[in-house]
C-alpha cells in the first residue's frame, strides 16, 4: 500500500457538551487544571480526555485521559504493540493518513480542540513537529532539508533562509559538524547526524511541541547520548513527548512518564500510570508498572 495515499481516514472529533466549555475558553484553562489529571505546578500543553482510537474494527487505544505538561519531557513507555506510537500520532493528527482511522474523545492543544472540523491540520503540524524512528532526511542537500519547512511556508529570501538554517542546525547541535557540508547530500551523513538533521528540520518551522517516536532505536550508544543531551537542552523552549522502548532512556531524559499497556491480544492499549518519572521508576502505584519496569514482562 502506498502509505502516502492521500485518502484520509475519517478522523472525527466529537465534542461532548460537558467539556465543550473548556475548549471555548483556553485562557482560563491554563490554571484551571483542578481536575485530578492535572499535574500540580505544571501548565498543560495537551489535554486528553477519554481518547479512544480505532483502525477500522481494531481498537488501538481506549480511555486515555492525561495532561502533557508544557516545557517538560514526557516519556511514553510500554511493551510493543501497546499503542505508544499511535498515541503520539494522535497529537499531530498523523493518524489521519491511516485509512479507516477513527478517534473519539477530546484532544486539546492550548485549550483548542485539534480534531474540530474547522481545525487547520497543516498549522497543527507546524506547531507540533515530529521526529521518526528511522532518520528520514529527504534525498536533498543538508541545507535544503532544513530549509524545506520554511520554504513551504513561503520564505524565499536567501538571507532569512540562511539564518534559519544556521540557527536550527545550532539548536540541533549539528552546526559544527555540517557547516562545511551544507551543499552535500544529507544521506551522506551518519545515522546520528541524520537524526539530528531531522530534528533541525522540525525546529526550522518554530514548533511548540516536538514528538519523537523512538528516535534512537536505529542509533548507536554515542549517537543516542548526543540526542539525549540535545533533548535536555531543547526542553527549555519546547514541550517534548518521546516514545521509547528503552526504560533507561525514559528514566534518564524525562520529567514525566506515561506507562501504556495492552492487557491481551485484541484489546486496546490503555494508560496504566502517569506521573513524574522518579515516582514511576522508584515507587509506582500500580503493580503492573512495577512488573514492567523491573523487567518481568514486555
Amino acid at each position: 500500500m502506498s502509505v502516502i495515499s492521500f485518502v484520509s481516514g475519517k478522523v472525527r472529533g466529537r465534542r461532548p457538551g460537558s467539556v465543550g466549555a473548556e475548549g471555548a475558553a483556553p485562557s482560563q484553562n491554563k490554571r484551571a487544571g483542578a481536575e485530578s489529571e492535572a499535574i500540580p505546578g505544571e501548565g498543560a500543553k495537551f489535554r486528553l480526555r477519554d481518547v479512544s482510537l480505532r483502525y477500522g474494527n481494531r481498537p488501538v487505544l481506549e480511555g486515555i485521559t492525561m495532561d502533557i505538561p508544557e516545557r517538560r519531557i514526557t516519556a511514553v513507555i510500554g511493551p510493543s504493540g501497546c499503542g505508544k506510537s499511535s498515541f503520539l500520532r494522535c497529537l499531530n493528527r498523523m493518524n489521519d493518513l491511516v485509512e479507516g482511522c477513527r478517534l473519539e474523545g477530546l484532544v486539546l492543544l492550548d485549550g483548542e480542540d485539534i480534531y474540530a472540523r474547522e481545525y487547520d491540520v497543516t498549522a497543527l503540524r507546524r506547531r507540533v513537529g515530529m521526529v521518526f524512528q528511522r532518520p528520514n532526511p529527504f534525498p536533498k542537500t543538508v541545507y535544503e532539508n532544513v530549509a524545506f519547512g520554511p520554504r513551504i511556508f513561503g520564505i524565499k529570501d536567501r538571507e532569512t533562509l540562511d539564518g534559519i538554517v544556521e540557527l536550527s542546525l545550532k539548536r540541533a547541535a549539528l552546526w559544527e559538524e555540517v557547516k562545511d557540508k551544507l551543499r552535500e547530500p544529507a544521506l551522506a551523513l551518519s545515522g546520528g547526524q541524520q537524526q539530528r538533521l531531522c530534528i533541525a528540520r522540525v525546529l526550522a518551522v518554530e514548533p511548540e511541541v516536538i514528538l519523537l517516536d523512538e528516535p534512537c532505536s536505529a542509533l548507536d550508544p554515542i549517537a543516542t547520548q548526543r540526542i539525549e543531551d540535545l533533548l535536555a537542552e531543547l526542553k527549555e523552549n519546547y514541550t517534548i513527548v518521546i516514545v521509547t522502548h528503552n526504560m533507561q532512556q525514559a528514566a534518564r531524559v524525562s520529567d514525566y512518564t506515561a506507562f501504556f499497556l495492552i492487557e491481551s491480544q485484541g484489546e486496546p492499549g490503555r494508560l496504566v500510570e502517569f506521573g513524574d518519572t522518579a515516582t514511576i521508576f522508584t515507587a509506582p502505584a500500580d503493580p503492573r508498572t512495577e512488573r514492567y519496569i523491573t523487567g518481568r514482562f514486555g
Binding site: I4, I152, R201
Partner: peptide, 25 residues
C-alpha cells in the same frame, strides 16, 4: 513513505509534498 511523512509532519500540504518531495525523489 517516510519522505512523505516527514514532509506532512512539518505542515506541508498534499500538493506541496507531491511537488517538492515525491516528484523529485
Amino acid at each position: 513513505a517516510s519522505y512523505a511523512q516527514a514532509s506532512l509532519a512539518v505542515g506541508a500540504t498534499r500538493w506541496q509534498t507531491t511537488w517538492r518531495v515525491l516528484l523529485p525523489a
